[in-house]
């Protein structure tokens, strides 16, 4: 394509529009939603607000929990005993599900998956990454977790126990990663900056 051609006014869109026909369940969702709005059960603005609230949750919430646990042993004990209550202490509501925090140590590495669908601790991590919902991750994380971890760049020694948590029902899991060496004396805020989404799913560790 020549320079001249590029300057030409284009009649075709740069990216194809995503406006194919609705699938069966998409049409069903639209129909049910419109009926509920029409009947006054909720409004279009209620739906928008719920989506906005969902999108506003980010891994920063989980990072605050982890950083607090790293700096406050009493909080860490409460977190491991009752994750739901410990999240609430920081103003994070876990809604209908319950939160279980699982601690990584020198000899134990935790990894979270939902083999049945894509259950994810959205209240502390926000929306899940696409790979978490993929059939490949969901089947392989439980079948060959060390191979999956290796692909994420996490190679664990043979004497470490890899413990996979399959979120099959009403619990949601948050991995409490190990605090990296060299962070002695850091503030909670600075520590929270080290805590990534992936380290709280368990596919990697926290690093400086």
């Amino acid at each position: 394509m020549t320079e001249i051609h590029h300057l030409h006014p284009h009649r075709h869109p740069a990216v194809p529009d995503d406006d194919g026909p609705l699938g069966y369940y998409q049409a069903l969702e639209v129909a049910v939603r419109e009926l509920l709005v029409e009947k006054g059960i909720f409004s279009g603005d209620d739906v928008r607000r719920a989506i906005e609230a969902m999108d506003a949750r980010t891994p920063a919430q989980g990072a605050r929990i982890v950083a607090r646990a790293w700096t406050n042993p009493a909080y860490k004990a409460r977190l491991l005993a009752d994750g739901t209550a410990a999240a609430r202490e920081l103003g994070i509501d876990t809604a209908a599900t319950r939160l279980i925090a699982v601690e990584n140590t020198r000899l134990l590495h935790n990894l979270v998956v939902c083999t049945l669908c894509s259950c994810y601790p959205r209240m502390v991590l926000g929306l899940p990454p696409d790979w978490y919902k993929s059939r490949a991750y969901r089947s392989r994380a439980v079948r060959e977790p060390r191979g999956v971890l290796r692909e994420f760049g996490t190679v664990l020694p043979e004497d470490v126990e890899v413990r996979v948590h399959d979120s099959t029902a009403d619990m949601r899991y948050l991995v409490l990663p190990e605090r990296p060496d060299g962070t002695e004396g850091w503030s909670e805020e600075r520590l929270a900056g080290l805590v990534t989404r992936d380290s709280m799913i368990g596919v990697t560790r926290c690093r400086l």
């Binding site: 060959e144 043979e158 004497d159 126990e161 979120s167 099959t168």
Partner: peptide, 16 residues
């Protein structure tokens, strides 16, 4: 998994 390739201490926890 009879052909599990990791060490014997590896575990999986499931809600049932």
């Amino acid at each position: 998994w009879p052909d599990y390739s990791g060490p014997a201490q590896d575990t999986v926890e499931v809600e049932i």
